[in-house]
């Protein structure tokens, strides 16, 4: 009998962190575009760092902040919130690592947005909220969808920061990627192979989706 918990946990972590990253990424991308160039450059580096740093380094920083003996971690613990060794700690780790993918693709989409559309909306009397949700977002839809899918895939495959922050506890914090390593380490080659195949299947579907979105975008542009 296979324990499906790692699949469930991985999907749960990826889904929740993807939703978080969707909104924070779009928010940061939208406001970063409005900042003065110097500030934007600095912010851009900080927001993109998790993408280029080794995930273990991200995990190290997360432990530095949210470790139960650290000020922030200790403070949160008073309210019963603990990110170490919990599944929502996994959400945090995955979100931090996946964030730059969403942020950068959304920013790219916003930058190629024809600002005249927003301006003409304003002069017609449309509210800025209406312009954002009904004109800007639909125009950037393909890019934002692609960013979301990429962020989801990255969150699903997160290993380094996750294993640092939440470790591997079967039935509690185990994800697909940590399970593969654990099974391999304990010489359960067949088990490891099984989860590798599961991961491969999910990733393939995700990438096919991205490709499909890109072709549709090209078609839309060609029109």
């Amino acid at each position: 009998m296979i324990d499906w918990y790692p699949l469930f946990n991985s999907l749960r972590i990826a889904a929740v962190s993807c939703v978080l990253v969707f909104f924070t990424g779009i928010f940061c991308a939208y406001y970063a575009a409005k900042l003065p160039r110097a500030v934007k450059g600095v912010l851009d580096v900080i927001l993109t760092l998790p993408m280029v740093l080794p995930p273990t380094v991200c995990g190290y920083f997360l432990l530095l902040v949210f470790g139960v003996k650290r000020p922030v971690g200790a403070f949160l613990l008073q309210y019963g919130v603990k990110f170490v060794m919990t599944w929502y700690g996994g959400v945090l780790a995955a979100a931090v690592v996946a964030f730059p993918l969403m942020y950068r693709t959304a920013r790219g989409a916003f930058e190629s947005f024809d600002q005249n559309l927003a301006w003409s909306g304003q002069t017609l009397g449309l509210s800025d909220t209406y312009i954002f949700w009904r004109i800007r977002m639909p125009a950037c839809r393909q890019g934002i969808l692609a960013g979301t899918v990429l962020a989801f895939a990255r969150a699903l495959g997160e290993y380094g920061a996750t294993s640092m922050l939440i470790g591997y506890t079967p039935g509690r914090t185990a994800t697909i990627s940590t399970t593969v390593y654990q099974l391999w380490r304990t010489n359960d080659e067949r088990g490891a192979f099984f989860w590798v195949m599961v991961n491969l299947a999910i990733s393939t579907v995700v990438l096919l989706t991205v490709n499909m979105l890109e072709t549709r975008q090209k078609k839309a542009v060609a029109k």
């Binding site: 003409s120 909306g121 004109i135 125009a139």
Partner: peptide
């Protein structure tokens, strides 16, 4: 606007 800026959607 020069490009008329019609909302494409």
């Amino acid at each position: 606007f020069q490009n008329y800026a019609l909302f494409p959607n």
